[in-house]
Amino acid sequence: TIDDAFRAIERAIQAENEGRYREALKHFLDGGEMIVTAAEKEASQKVRNLLLHKGKEVLEWAEHLAEWILE
């Protein structure tokens, strides 16, 4: 659900702030994927587009974090 997705993102932010970057990455990926999944089930085109945009933002952040971890 969207609530689960945002809880995962909150955990990711907390982990990132505490320097637990790999854990943060996992939570960002989980949250982003949950948002995209919820968007695919959404009946309203406007809400679907907003959710897809937010999911994409979260997944892009996860990608940047992963690249930073690997440096």
Rank of each mutant, 00 (worst) to 15 (best):
E40P: 02
A38K: 02
A43V: 12
N49M: 09
R20T: 02
R22A: 09
W68F: 12
N49L: 09
V58T: 01
A5N: 01
W61D: 01
W68T: 06
A38R: 04
K56N: 07
D4K: 09
W61C: 12
A12C: 10
N17H: 09
T1W: 14
L50R: 10
I2P: 01
A66Q: 06
M34Y: 06
H53T: 12
L50W: 15
K41P: 03
K54E: 02
Y21S: 01
E40V: 13
F28C: 06
H64F: 07
F6P: 00
N49I: 11
L51W: 07
V58P: 00
R22S: 11
R7S: 04
G55T: 05
E60W: 07
L65H: 01
I2D: 01
T37I: 11
K54I: 15
K56H: 05
Q14P: 00
R22Q: 13
V47G: 02
R48Q: 07
A38V: 09
H27I: 05
E33M: 14
Q45K: 11
E42H: 08
A15N: 03
G55A: 15
R20H: 08
A5I: 10
A5S: 02
E23W: 01
E33Y: 15
I13L: 07
A15S: 05
L51R: 00
L59E: 02
R7Y: 05
E18A: 05
K46H: 14
W61S: 01
G19T: 00
D30P: 02
E40K: 15
E67R: 14
A15M: 06
A5L: 12
H53K: 15
A15V: 02
Q14R: 11
Q14D: 05
A43Q: 11
A39G: 04
F6Y: 10
A12N: 00
I2R: 03
Q14H: 10
A12L: 03
I69D: 02
L29G: 01
E42C: 13
D4E: 15
L29C: 10
M34R: 05
E63R: 15
E33S: 13
R22W: 09
A5V: 07
R22K: 13
A15F: 11
H64N: 08
I35K: 01
H27S: 04
L65T: 01
V36F: 12
R7M: 06
W61A: 05
I69F: 07
G19V: 02
V58I: 13
W68C: 11
I69G: 00
E33D: 08
A43F: 09
V47H: 04
G32C: 13
L65D: 04
A12Y: 03
E10D: 10
A39R: 02
K46V: 14
K56E: 07
K41V: 06
L52Y: 09
K26C: 14
A62K: 00
A66T: 05
G31D: 02
E42P: 02
R7A: 10
E63M: 13
E16N: 13
G55F: 14
H64S: 09
D30C: 14
W61T: 08
E10N: 07
K41I: 06
